[in-house]
Structures are given as structure tokens and as C-alpha cells.
């Protein structure tokens, strides 16, 4: 029972972080600040949900899989945030210079 309650609190907290991330994505004024809001929020969100479910996973194997999913998602989020931010920066500079190579 107590375990169920902890899971409920953690998953709800995770959902709250996802909602906050989406809110940031919708409300922040420019590309780079939106990126900043998103990567922090959605990784914490997934982390809390994974933590909550790991308590219910039954076997250690499932719990390990859950943590691995979270770790992979974090690495992917970090990489994409860096790449997309850089790409946006570069293409804006290219636009400003007016030299369109393509």
C-alpha cells in the first residue's frame, strides 16, 4: 500500500515536470530559451516516472531496464539539445551573412 502511494506521488511528480516542460516550450520567447526549458524538465519528468515504476517492477531485471531507458533518454536529450542549438545558431548566422551556399 505504502509502495503504491509512493509510486503514485512519483509518477504524478513526473507528469508535472512533463507539463512544465511543455509549458516552457509553448511560452518561452525564442528558440534557445525554449531548448533550455525543455531538456531539464523532460528528463526529470521521465526520471521520476521511471523511479516510481521501478518500485513496482517486480524483478530486478525490469528495474535495471527502466534505469537503462532513462539513462539512454538522458544521453539522447543532451546530444540533441547541443546539436539542434548549434544548428540553429549556425543557420541563423548563415542567414545574417546572406551567403546562401545551398
Amino acid at each position: 500500500m505504502i509502495l503504491d502511494a509512493i509510486t503514485m506521488v512519483l509518477t504524478l511528480g513526473g507528469l508535472a515536470f512533463f507539463a512544465a516542460g511543455t509549458l516552457g516550450l509553448l511560452r518561452f520567447p525564442d528558440t534557445h530559451s525554449r531548448l533550455h526549458a525543455l531538456t531539464k524538465a523532460d528528463n526529470l519528468g521521465l526520471g521520476l516516472i521511471v523511479l516510481g515504476l521501478a518500485l513496482q517492477a517486480g524483478t530486478p531485471g525490469n528495474a535495471i531496464k527502466l534505469v537503462l531507458i532513462w539513462a539512454l533518454a538522458m544521453i539522447a536529450a543532451g546530444t540533441t539539445a547541443q546539436l539542434i542549438a548549434r544548428s540553429a545558431l549556425v543557420s541563423n548566422l548563415r542567414k545574417d551573412d546572406g551567403d546562401r551556399t545551398r
Binding site: 512533463f18 516550450l25 528558440t31 525554449r34 531548448l35 523532460d42 521521465l46 543557420s91
Partner: peptide, 13 residues
């Protein structure tokens, strides 16, 4: 970049 970023959030969701 905005569209791709939003798609990334849907991926995590």
C-alpha cells in the same frame, strides 16, 4: 529547430 525540438519532447513523452 523549434519544430525538431518539440518533436524531441514528444519522443521523451
Amino acid at each position: 529547430a523549434d519544430r525538431m525540438m518539440a518533436a524531441q519532447l514528444t519522443g521523451t513523452a
